[in-house]
Design a protein around this nucleic acid. Structure first.
Length: 315
DNA sequence: AACAAAAGCAACCGCCGTTCA
DNA sequence: CTGAACGGCGGTTGCTTTTGT
């Protein structure tokens, strides 16, 4: 017996976005059959649809199925996806079986549009889940003019694994550039006084040693899965907020569920001598942006040296 | 306000393993 | 056993929406 060729190649079969009428026809047909489709190939004709069976299956499984969960991915889902991807690779359908109500297509899209970029920003290769070479991180972060905060984050993420003085200097240079430009620095999570000006004689920055302690202890690929990468969602929200906010206005108290991202843990800032290693980048991103321990640049010999050796104008 | 660029996402394409005649 | 169709999957495209200038 010879089977007929796939309907997908029929010239008259409709393609493109589905209309409400088509959706209704498909759903009603499947419901009439108790949720059982039988043959996808025969379904379009039986349901009165001028669509390829394959297209019907896709529409049903990715959009119309009643058990599909809509809305943003939660942090837990995000962590699970990353963990599963590290183990399974691009086995989206397998990954989808571990997340209730999520389709492989949705997960795949979310990975490609959100998680992948975030991992890159954190200095983690989204394919291998290993730490990227520092040079790559810097390149990734510095590709867009508006991406300076990302460059700083990438540089910070790379500090823990720096293997060359040159790269370390590049990372610090990024930090210095951020401080020299108030808006970018604010976006990176540094607190600037309301009257901040690059030319001002007293520039306040977070305690440098605290920053270096945190950054130096960060090992992205070692433990990022265990940490609350967490802050992914918050990270995005805050980036957008910072990018669009008319900085450097005095920050309003954030909503309880929304804390600034690129900041340093309070307990570390308050206890500089504590060498507690951070568990991951989340520690740098998830706490409110409060810096009890501040110092001025002139008072910090390290900053003084750095500024003198940089090409920035003297402060 | 208008335009351009970037991001997000639904849908399509084509390959591959399985099923079936 | 063979070959064609089916169903499923991952990669990619292109349209729509959002954001930036």
């Amino acid at each position: 017996m010879v089977r007929s060729p796939c309907c997908c190649h029929d010239a008259g079969v409709k393609k493109g976005p589905w209309t409400e009428e088509e959706d209704r026809a498909l759903v009603e047909h499947i419901q009439r059959h108790g949720g059982h489709v039988g043959s996808w190939r025969n379904l379009p004709k039986a349901a009165g649809l001028n669509r390829c069976g394959k297209s019907c299956r896709l529409r049903w499984t990715n959009y119309l199925r009643p058990d599909i969960k809509r809305g943003n991915f939660t942090d837990d889902e995000e962590r699970l996806i990353i963990a599963l991807h590290a183990e399974l690779g691009n086995k989206w359908s397998t990954i989808a079986t571990h997340l209730d109500g999520r389709t492989d297509n949705e997960i795949k899209n979310y990975w490609n549009t959100h998680i992948r970029k975030k991992l890159l920003r954190m200095g983690v290769d989204p394919v291998t889940h290993q730490r990227l070479p520092p040079d790559d991180i810097l390149l990734n972060g510095a590709t867009t003019p508006a991406g300076l905060p990302e460059a700083i984050l990438s540089a910070a993420a790379s500090l823990g694994g720096l293997n060359s003085v040159l790269v370390q200097a590049q990372a610090l240079q990024l930090l210095l550039q951020a401080i020299n430009g108030g808006g970018a620095a604010a976006a990176a999570g540094f607190i600037m006084p309301n009257n901040f000006s690059p030319a001002a004689s007293s520039i306040v920055v977070p305690n440098f040693q605290d920053q270096m302690n945190l950054l130096a202890n960060y090992r992205p690929a070692d433990d990022y899965l265990n940490s609350s990468i967490a802050s992914f969602a918050e990270h995005d929200v805050v980036q957008q907020q910072n990018a669009s906010a008319p900085a450097p206005a005095a920050p309003a108290p954030p909503p309880a569920a929304l804390v600034p991202a690129a900041s340093f843990p309070q307990e570390v800032a308050a206890a500089p001598a504590d060498d507690r290693p951070v568990q991951g980048f989340s520690d740098l991103l998830s706490e409110p942006m409060e810096m009890p321990s501040m110092c001025s640049l002139e008072d910090d010999p390290f900053w003084k040296d750095m500024l003198e050796s940089s090409r920035l104008p003297p402060l």
